[in-house]
């Protein structure tokens, strides 16, 4: 079974914002909402500056899903975290919970009133009939149902941003790291998809305390 993931290779990202533009164009995302952003790390430090493309990472144990008061989130069989805009009340809890700043809120009126949350759908639409007008208007284009990968990754010129089945992405990334001999760290990967039990540090055992008799 496929488990959809995003990987952003900081060694390759050239901050061209092609992914941001592709996403905006593909889904007609409204002004002020950015489902995907390019972030610069270690800005200005020579030799250490890196750029990464950030959007919803479709976490294995999604914190947005845990805090939603109306339970509008769901995870598909392929590990894509989606939400039902008909249920969303725009409370913003998911925004505070998300470590990637993925949930976005369009301004719905005067005095900073928030509209329904909008975020990356992994180009998988939402809970409407696939490729229907309602789905496209609410969630954007459903490329996954067309047998295509997210537009951002397919548009990436340096292939810094990869999308697809986690196993395939691991193979691609492993080969890259082996060939170039560096840059094996994946920003946000452990946060989104967890750390393997073998790689995680052993839990610290509390020292046995002696009870006073």
């Amino acid at each position: 079974m496929a488990r959809m993931k995003f990987i952003c290779d900081a060694e390759r990202c050239i901050e061209c914002n092609g992914c941001v533009t592709a996403c905006k164009n593909e889904h007609d995302v409204p002004w002020g909402v950015n489902r995907r952003r390019v972030v610069t790390l270690n800005d200005g430090i020579v030799g250490a500056e890196r750029s990464i493309s950030v959007a919803c990472m479709h976490c294995s144990d999604a914190p947005c899903k845990a805090v939603c008061p109306v339970n509008c989130f769901y995870t598909t069989d392929d590990g894509v975290v989606l939400h039902d805009k008909d249920l969303c009340i725009g409370c913003g809890y998911c925004f505070y919970a998300c470590p990637f700043g993925a949930p976005q809120f369009p301004q719905a009126g005067a005095f900073g009133l928030r509209g329904k949350m909008d975020k990356c759908t992994f180009c998988a639409g939402g809970p409407e009939k696939d490729t229907s007008k309602a789905e496209t208007e609410k969630y954007g284009r459903n490329r996954l149902a067309e047998g295509k990968l997210p537009a951002c990754a397919e548009m990436c010129s340096t292939k810094a941003l990869l999308a697809g089945d986690g196993d395939v992405l691991s193979d691609i990334y492993r080969e890259r790291v082996m060939r170039r001999g560096r840059g094996g760290d994946l920003w946000g990967h452990a946060t989104a998809y967890g750390v393997k039990a073998s790689a995680a540090p052993a839990p610290v055992q509390p020292a046995p305390t002696q009870q006073k008799s």
């Binding site: 496929a2 039902d84 409407e128 149902a145 697809g164």
Partner: peptide
């Protein structure tokens, strides 16, 4: 989840409910 049930991405005219074909394409 209280969300409405969602269609599977392979339940359409292109893949005709064949999950394996959809996975192969992706």
């Amino acid at each position: 989840s209280a969300a409405k049930p969602d269609d599977k991405p392979y339940q359409n005219d292109q893949f005709k409910g064949d999950r394996a074909a959809w996975e192969r394409t992706l």
